[in-house]
């Protein structure tokens, strides 16, 4: 569903520990642990500024990081769906 808008839980809901390039997330509302690779933590960070669709997330991330090419939006969209299935983000 193109254009779906997502929202992430506030920062205090997730405890993050970095382990050799990966991030270990303990998600308090679910009690579940997730091991995620970039750009998933960066997507969560971007979403904490407020609800957004994949395009807006990419725009926010470009302000912080070097994102190459036009495929970024597709990649972010795919990651968002994974994060949604894990319960880390939800649709508004």
């Amino acid at each position: 569903m193109a254009g779906a808008r997502y929202v992430a839980d506030p920062e205090e809901c997730v405890r993050t520990v970095a382990l050799d390039g990966l991030s270990l997330l303990f998600h308090r509302p679910s009690g579940m642990t997730h091991i995620v690779a970039p750009p998933a933590p960066q997507i969560l960070e971007a979403l904490r500024l407020g609800p957004a669709d994949a395009g807006e997330v990419v725009a926010r991330m470009r302000a912080w990081y070097d994102l190459e090419g036009d495929e970024a939006a597709d990649a972010v969209e795919a990651r968002l769906e994974e994060l949604e299935a894990a319960g880390l983000v939800r649709r508004t």
């Binding site: 308090r28 509302p29 679910s30 009690g31 579940m32 319960g87 939800r90």
Partner: peptide
Amino acid sequence: IQALWEAEMTRR
């Protein structure tokens, strides 16, 4: 926590 979460994921 797990029970509430399962209910929430079902709601979603």
